[in-house]
Design a protein around this nucleic acid. Sequence first.
RNA 1: GGAGAGGUGGCCGAGUGGUCGAAGGCGCUCGCCUGCUAAGCGAGAGUGUCGCUUAAUAGGCGACACCACGGGUUCGAAUCCCGUCCUCUCCGCCA
Length: 429
Amino acid sequence: MHDLNLITQNAEKYKYYLQIRNENPKIIDQILEINRKRKELISTINNLRSQKNSISEKIGRKQYSNEQEKQELINESNKIDQEIKNLEPVLNEIEENLKNILLNVPNIVSPDVPVGKSSDENVVVYEEGEKPAFDFEPLPHWEIAENISIIDFERGVKLSGSRFYIMKGKLAKLQRALINFFLDFHIEKHNYKELYVPFIVKRHCLEGAGQLPKFEDNLYKDSEDDMWLVPTAEVPLTNIYRDEILPADVLPLYYVAYTPCFRKEKIAAGRDVRGIKRGHQFDKVELYKFVLPENSDYELEKLVQDACDILRALELNYRVVKLCSGDLGFAAAKTYDIEVWAAGCKEWLEVSSCSNVLDFQARRANIRFKRTPTSKPEFIHTLNGSGLALPRVVIAILENYQQKDGTIKIPKVLQPYTKFDKIEMHWKY
RNA sequence: GGAGAGGUGGCCGAGUGGUCGAAGGCGCUCGCCUGCUAAGCGAGAGUGUCGCUUAAUAGGCGACACCACGGGUUCGAAUCCCGUCCUCUCCGCCA
C-alpha cells in the first residue's frame, strides 16, 4: 500500500514503476482523480459537522433565551444533519473504491533493480560451490525415490489429489532434521528469535502481507469462519506487530519460524508436476526482519547471506539471482532468489526468495516505530526470505548426494540431526 | 457449546447524556534542584484525516474523527439500545 500524498507528488515515478513491472500505469491517474474528489467531500462534510457541533454546544451551554429559540436551533441542526447523511454514503463509497484500487497497486521498485520484462532478464549475481562429479548418470529425485521406495506418490494422490505425496522413513526424518538444523542454525549463528505461529489466519493478515485481494486464487480457505491457510510464514510474521508502534531501540528484530505452506498453484498449473518440486503443501523455515528504513538495503544483503550459509554448510552448489523489475513479486521492491543446483533434473531450483519490502507491508498492516519517545511515528521496513524451503533442499540432497548403488549420503552437518549417514532401500508396505 | 463479567490513552484506572480527547497514578520527555544516583519540584506529551501557513511528507494554526468494531436513539453519546469480535471466570467436551 502506498502513501496517497507520495503518489500525488510523484505520479510520474509511480507510473514508471508500474510500467517496468508490466502493469498498467493508467491506474495512477484514476487514483489522483478519486483522491481529489475525496478531499473535496471531506472538507464539505467537516464544515457541516463543525456547524452542527457548535449548535449542540450552544444548546448544552443553554445559550438561548426561550424554548422557541431552542427549537429553532434543533431544527437547524436537523437540517444540517440531513445534508451530512446524504453525503456520507458517497464519501464511504469513494474511500472504499480508493482503498480497493490502492490495495492492488504493487510496491515501488528499488533503483538498483535491473529493468526487464521477464525472468529471462534476471541477473546472476554470483555462484558458489562445485557441481558434484558423478561416474554414472545421476537420476532425477522422482526416480531415486521410486527405486529405493522413499516417496509414495500414488497414495499421496489417493489421499488429497495431484501434487500431494507421502514421504517415508528416513526421507521423512531427513526433512524433519533439516527443519531443526535450519532453525538452530539461524538461532545460534545469526541471532534470529524462533517463533511458533498459527498456520491459519484471518483475512486481514493476508491483506497486510499483500496476498489479498490480488492473489485469492492461490489460497486455501474456510469461508465459513474467514480462516485462511498460510501460503508462507511471512503472513503471520508480518502481522505480529500490526497496529503497533515499536520503540526504535528494539530494532532490528530478527525472527525465524517454521510452518507448512499451502498454495493452490493455479498460476503454475502444469508446471513442475513431476516429483516434489511444487506441491500444494510444503514446509519452509522463514526469516523475517523488522528494521529501520535506512538499514533495510543492508539488511537484505545480510539476509541473503544468512540463507546462503545454510547451503554452504550443506555443501551444495548454489547461485544468487537478482530479479529484474518484470519478475518482482507484488510486495517486493527488490528480490534475490537463491537457487540450488539439482544434478538429477539438471535444473537450478529456487530454494529461497529474499525481499526488501520497504514500508509496503508496514503501511498495509500499520506497523510503525518511534525514533525517540517524543518523535512522530514512522512506518517500519520489513524483509522476508526463506531460510530455506524444504522440499527443494531435499531434492538437492537426494540428487547431489546420490551414490552409484542407489543410496543417498547424508551431508555431515546433518548427521547429528538424522542420526544416520545414508538412506537406503526402504520397505514397500 | 452453556452461564456470568468485561473491553477507556504506553500501562493501571475513574468516568452512566452536554464545556470529556477524557480525572488520578505509574511510566515517558524537557527543565530545576541536591557531590552522583534515588527522591523532590515545575512544565509537557495520544493517533489519524482535511484545510490554511511553509521550500518542507520540519514546525505552527484551525476543523473533523477516534474511549474494541459496526450500526441505532438524541440537538448532543465513552456514557443509552442492537449486532459482531475479543478477553476473563465457572460449567461441559476434548489432544
